[in-house]
Structures are given as C-alpha cells and as structure tokens.
Amino acid sequence: MMPRYLSANVIFGLTPIVLVIALWQGLVSFGVAPTVLLPPPGLVFSRLLQQLLTWTFQEEIVATLIRLFAGFAIAVIVGVSIGVAAAASPVINAVVRPIVRVLAPLPKVALYPALLLLLGFGHGSKITLVAADALFPILLSTYYGASTVEQKLVWSAMAAGTPRYEILFKVVLPAAMPSILTGCRIGLVISCIVVFLAEMITSTDGLGHALVTAARTFQAVDMFVPLIAISLLGLILNGLLGAVRSYLLRGFPDA
C-alpha cells in the first residue's frame, strides 16, 4: 500500500528532527546550557510567530525578499541567455567557456567589498552579489541541458519546416527545461543564503541585519528568529519552485 508506506516513511523521517528538538529542549531543561545562550525551542518558535506579526519584522522580510528576487531574476535571465547562446554558437562557446571556468570557482563573496565601493551600501551591491552567486549554477545547467538536446528532436522539428532561429525557442529551450529548472532550484537556495549573509556583513535592514543586531546585544532568542525565518523562506520558495517545476515538466519522464 503506497499511502501507508509513505506515512510510515514520513514518521521515520521526522524522528531525527524531533530528536534534535528534544535534545535542544533537554539541554535547556537539564541546565546543561543556560537559557541566555540557548533559549528553549518553545520560546524561539513563539517569538518567531510573535515577530512575524510585527510591522518592523515584516519590513525586514520585505527588504530581504526584494533583494533576493531581483538578484535571482537577473541571474535567471543572464544565465539562461548565456547558457543557450554558448550551446548554440561555437564562437560564443569559445569565449564563454574559459571565462566561466575562471569565474565559477571564484568565491563571489570576496567581490562584495568592491561592490560596496562601486554600488554603495544599498540594494544595488547586495542584488549584484546575489545575482553573481546564483548565476553560475543556472548558466552551467542551462548550457548542459541545451547542448545535450537529442539531435533527432531538432531534426524532427526541422523536417516539419521549423526555421533555424525558431528551433531555439521551439525545441532547444523546452527540451532543456528540466535542466534549466534544476539550475534555478540550486540558484534560488544560494540566493537565499547569499542575501542573508550580505545583510549580515553590512546592512541597515533585512533579516541578516536583524541577526547581527541581536548578536551585538547578546539576545540569543532574537538571533535564532531571523535564522529560522530565512531557512523557512528557503524551504517555502524551494517548494513553490518544485510545484512550478512539476507543472512545467508534466510531459517529461521522472520529473
């Protein structure tokens, strides 16, 4: 029975999560860790709920989300275009390939000080950093997907009278979609992480800034809240993208 099997698995899988929370609670209850350093889980989650309802915290979330989406959107547009172009044209490929090989393993966060100098401390520098970090997984998987499109799909479309320039949009892009969306998924989680870190390093608002503010005043509870908030955000966005993915790829096998 599929459903019973699944629910058994779910309970099984939830065990370690419950264990972690129990251990956390235990550390506090048995006085191993003082509440100042490790607030009990109940306190953290009720604080999170309470914060979610306040206007100031919502503003922090909005600031983070704006940067996150702007950076991610730029990364998707640039990454997919360059990826497809590099797969389509040997000349572009020859130029893009070595540049990507050099830039992909470069720790983008090291560029952050330069971005601060060039674009200021506002949205611009953080959006650029997010875009730079999310760009490469999207670009590489688009390239991979576009260059491994089954040759005979292309031939079939050409024989049916599709002009060469339309092949790109009618065959290559849809056929590369599973790979593109995998790249987007990785890029999205990276975006979440990077925007938060950038806000922690220097910012005046956003969830990352909220953590740093709490750390300066040793408010352990308030340090946990933004961290959990950004992780939840990551999970939710990941889930949403998963839903979009299964809709877009409904025709593909094992999507």
Binding site: N9, C192, M200, L211, A215, F218, A220, M223, L227, G234
Partner: peptide, 25 residues
C-alpha cells in the same frame, strides 16, 4: 528515509550565519 528530511531542513540554512551563535557558545 531517516536522514533525508533532516538534511532537507538544514539545506537552506546559511551556514556562515551560524557564526555569531556558535561564537556565543
């Protein structure tokens, strides 16, 4: 089945952001 959900929950946590908390401990 045991570890996957836990890892999935940990996956989107920015690890470097744990720095201030771990520093506290």
């Amino acid at each position: 089945a045991f570890f996957n959900p836990l890892l999935m929950v940990i996956y989107p946590v920015p690890k470097a952001a744990l720095m201030p908390i771990i520093m506290l401990w």
